[in-house]
Amino acid sequence: MEDNKIIYAENLTKKFGNFTAVNSISFSVNKGEIFGFLGANGAGKTTAIRMLCGLSTPTSGKATVAGFDVFKQTENIKKNIGYMSQKFSLYEDLTVKENIVFYGGIYGLSNKEIKEKTDYLVDILKIGDARNKLIKSLPLGWKQKLAFSVSILHNPKIVFLDEPTGGVDPVTRRQFWNMIYDAASKGVTVFVTTHYMDEAEYCNRVSIMADGVIAAMDTPSKLKESYNVKTMHDVFVKIAR
């Protein structure tokens, strides 16, 4: 296995009784890459992500995340990844600062680090006045950006984003992707699922899952070329139909 491959999966399979949710998928993600993990609802994306995050033990196959085995070293994996779910992941009844302190705390950041990070985020997200406001009083776009910032607070090697931009307006989505690029440029590997095909175009490489298997995997431009269509949307429709 090359050092460059930060996520590596080989014949990874998950069965629930007779139902095979993920059927022998093999892929790898390079360090610093923005990897789009696409697929229709029910294609097995969430199950795959849960296995990679150490939440669910695979039925068979092999996989390493940040160099750690998904069967045996889930504790190590958890320390090295960030996660943001499609549901909003900050506490609404806590302030911006308290959320940062809490999440920083559970990842074992020191008080000094937490304070530095808080100042940095408040500055970068331009929410100076809102630092002590409850999350529920903030607009959705801010919350979403803050949630992403919090998910990479502990400088993880990989961040898993499960449909992070659901329900967000196009301008905020654009800003959100700028933050993703920014994180990737600093060496964080981004593993992102989305239903927005314009977002798929932003990824370095995408894989498209259908019925538990990876139906296609390449850069967006090569995929469009090989399927002879103009947009990722058309590629997706052809495969996931």
Binding site: C53, G54, L55, E75, K78, K79, I81, Y83, M84, S85, Q86, K87, F88, S89, L90, Y91, E92, Y103, I106, Y107, G108, S151, F160
Partner: peptide, 13 residues
């Protein structure tokens, strides 16, 4: 319900 449980489970806690 609010989805933070998943985040907690993915954390080292």
């Amino acid at each position: 319900e609010i989805g933070t449980m998943e985040v907690l489970l993915v954390s080292p806690l």
